[in-house]
Write a protein that binds this DNA or RNA. Structure first.
Lengths: 231, 231
DNA sequence: GAATTTTATTGAAATATTTAACAAATTTAA
DNA sequence: TTAAATTTGTTAAATATTTCAATAAAATTC
């Protein structure tokens, strides 16, 4: 692995590259260029080459990239060569949808334990995943050595649950609650805030009509392309 | 008021500010400082002040910001002063969870129509939302003047559905499929890729910890950079 | 009412990220 | 075999974003 610092923006794109490489591999493709990749993942080809270059020279000039080799490289880089167990905290509405979602299908990630407070859920098995009492959470997390959790509980108990997760040794939290939880700096939190997403989208379509991703042939110059927000 | 362009990074944080202002208002608070806000939303106070300043002088020196006034300002800015109807394309696993999710509770956003191919869904009402045949989609979108859609269909038909959405006049798409759809540049797509999220999280906890980069002040992290790839 | 404190605003500096440009390596075609 | 075409890797430039520092205004305290 490269000993240079990987920019966060680059890190966030890696799964995207990885997924498309898997697709190409499955389709029997042996080589791919940054230009072709760019088309599929909608990231500028210069950015792709720049991203790859942080990891060293992965391609060949005049040739492109070897699909299988690159796929394997990213598989390792993304820890997809070993199974990652994930805990689901809160088996409610969204939680159950995520259980069904089945991350494992194309990935070495699976939800291996669920936790809830509801008596009628505790002790049951959903989609093959056992649901435990939240009181057992710290113990179970330690015992099962789980270090990633998905947090889908009511806002009111989000921080409390985050504290328990930290106590249980979890190092990464995917937080679906709108609360920005406080955790020690060595624990990583990714927030997925669906309401925020929608509001931002609505804001953008009203004020930034020009910046949508465009991959279609450029129409002629649109004065809106330099629209400024005035109010 | 400022006639400067609002940075996208700023725009993405607006809903976060808005939500916390609503909370403060409900709690009867009349004023708030950028420092206090910073604590709750986990964004550096300097960034908050800078963000606000793009919209003009919203606060008072030595005092802070008037909660109600600021809340109302953002309400307008985020179009929360009028109802936004959203279409749900694909009433499956995740789709139904989103129907239950009920964006409307604290927001002027509601899913007002669902679309699917399954006969047993078509014609039914879920959470008060009528489900239509996907063949009626273009017509219904036009008739109901819906301009935002949530896309939760199987990958294979993601592009096809996106095309229909565009034809129906939709200007914003929240895309839960892993496919990066191609749309005209005036249509905005926000990608929410749950598998990507998890993989990135796993990458971060493994890679960035090994390299000791977890001491950055940003550890609580700028949550809003996590989701979007299409900028 | 003067002194002190708080805190927004603003411009500038520091970081981070994306895009552009192009030499070097390789492949392909003639 | 050689010339043309392709495509990477990398440096530099351009953008975008965040953070810092200086200042000024308002509010509070004494």
């Amino acid at each position: 692995m490269a000993d240079k610092k990987i920019p966060k923006a680059t890190a966030r794109r890696l799964p995207l590259y990885y997924r498309y490489l898997r697709f190409l591999h499955e389709a029997g493709k042996e080589r791919v260029s940054s230009a072709k990749l760019s088309e599929a993942v909608k990231v500028d080809s210069a950015t792709i080459r720049r991203d790859f270059s942080y990891f060293g020279a992965l391609g060949k000039r005049g040739y492109g990239y070897d699909v299988e080799a690159l796929m394997n490289f990213f598989s390792k880089t993304l820890n997809q060569d070993r199974l990652t167990n994930v805990a689901l905290i809160g088996v409610g509405n969204l939680g159950q949808a995520l259980l069904n979602y089945n991350f494992r299908r194309n990935n070495n990630i699976r939800i291996s334990a669920g936790f809830d407070v509801k008596d009628d859920l505790i002790g049951t098995i959903h989609q093959g995943v056992p649901i435990y009492d939240i009181n057992e959470m710290v113990d179970q997390l330690e015992m099962q050595q789980i270090d990633v959790a998905i947090l889908t509980v009511p806002s009111e108990i989000a921080q409390e649950m985050a504290d328990k997760l930290v106590k249980g040794g979890v190092r990464g939290i995917m937080n679906f609650t709108p609360i920005r939880v406080t955790v020690p700096k060595e624990v990583r939190v990714h927030n997925v805030d669906l309401t925020n997403e929608l509001q931002t989208l609505i804001y953008f379509i009203n004020y930034y009509q020009d910046f949508g991703q465009n991959t279609e042939p450029e129409e002629d110059d649109n004065p809106l392309n330099d629209l400024f927000y005035n109010d």
